[in-house]
Design a protein around this nucleic acid. Structure first.
Lengths: 230, 230
DNA sequence: CAGTGGTCTAGACCACAAG
DNA sequence: TTGTGGTCTAGACCACTGG
């Protein structure tokens, strides 16, 4: 008969935060006290409060205790699916077209983001993702063949580099930067959109430990929105 | 003498996923088996695998067991600070200017996102956030006074609505949509940027249970990037 | 129906950091 | 130094869901 779950403890904690029974900037009781008050084990309280701390609603420090932050930095979770699934989730038919593939020396900015010597040849991929036969997203990618040697023999005309890498190059770390850019003339042509249209872009870099795997810029067709919840 | 932590179990699990010792699409051993193999308690294995499942690297289902997903949907964590802290974290001086404040009937699209009757008057705020005295972000906000009555007497000339709401209106749910828009003439004027510049925008709606609190569009000055890690 | 993950407990020890 | 959260354990029961 365990009516008390960590979720119920969490809900009660949330209530106290919202009602300011636990005021912003203030300490809250120790885990042990709360456990006794609520009639459950300390581990249960720990689970509830740790979870709140991970979403930014509490700050916990050993010895210092737990407090309600004055300026909570909320954490939203962003789901990063492969592009094909993103399209299919919208109920549209996915299409893919490889526009270019070459092995060449990367420009300085790509070297910098990947922290590579300028003389390392990389594989460059240019590809278009389609939704219901209209351009959805333009993929401009650089791949480090030293990190994923199998890529050189991969057939990237039927499967996108995006998807191939997700399935074949487990990475340990990735950086994302979201921004807005103008459609240049060539980009506009490829995305079938007006020149000068505002494009939502994602710059992403992935690493296997210290070894850079790939850097990619995804330029989404006008109107695209990336969603998240909190 | 507990040399085995849930982090070490997680690292071992990650290794097996990366080396394909646990292949994509395949089942992995039960928690109990793993616990025995690794010489720790099942709770420790549970903590490690649950955490991996939360980042999308494993799929767990009662009775069905745990498997490595074929197309992992990775989860990135976005930190959403109040704008002032965002500016200050860049080492810039924060500034704020209230451009307009009125109580009026919202346009249909705002009613729709907030799921309100068209005849509900809302508070509209237009404000500019500055970094080192240059425009950083334009805030166009609608607030439901029924959700936060105290707002009507708040002095929003010195503290931004952004900050005031974070501190005074604990919300339970929020939606985000990130996109790119063109700077219109008036927006360009306010952000001191060329007309037609690409702007990174965030549309955010927050709720207290079923009660809509606020809808806001943040338009960032050209060049702004939002970052995340995985 | 039965196997798997989900969770709770009571107790213990430990790591960290504030004072 | 010492209080606080972080974690592990061993065992137990439960909830969900696949077969």
């Amino acid at each position: 008969m365990t009516a008390i779950t960590w979720q119920s403890v969490q809900a009660e904690a949330l209530r106290r935060i919202r009602t300011r029974e636990w005021p912003p900037g203030g300490q809250i009781p120790h885990e042990a006290d709360l456990a006794e008050e609520l009639g459950c084990a300390r581990a249960t309280v720990n689970r509830a409060l740790r979870d709140l701390a991970e979403s930014g609603l509490l700050e916990r420090r050993r010895k210092a205790g737990t407090r309600v932050p004055l300026n909570p930095v909320r954490k939203a979770t962003l789901e990063i699916p492969i592009i094909r699934l993103d399209v299919e989730a919208r109920g549209q038919a996915y299409g893919y077209r490889l526009l270019a593939r070459e092995t060449t020396l990367p420009p300085p900015d790509v070297c910098a983001t990947l922290k590579l010597q300028a003389k390392t040849p990389l594989i460059r991929i240019l590809a278009l993702h389609l939704a219901d036969n209209t351009p959805f997203c333009l993929e401009d990618r650089w791949i480090n063949p030293l990190a994923v040697p199998e890529i050189v023999s991969a057939d990237l005309t039927t499967i996108s580099a995006n998807e191939w890498l997700v399935q074949n190059a487990a990475f340990s770390r990735g950086d994302f930067a979201f921004g807005a850019t103008l459609a240049t003339d060539t980009t506009a042509l490829r995305l079938s959109c007006p020149q000068g249209a505002p494009l939502f872009t994602v710059d992403r870099t992935t690493w296997a430990a210290a070894l850079p795997i790939t850097a990619v810029r995804l330029s989404y067709a006008p109107g695209y929105q990336m969603r998240a919840e909190i």
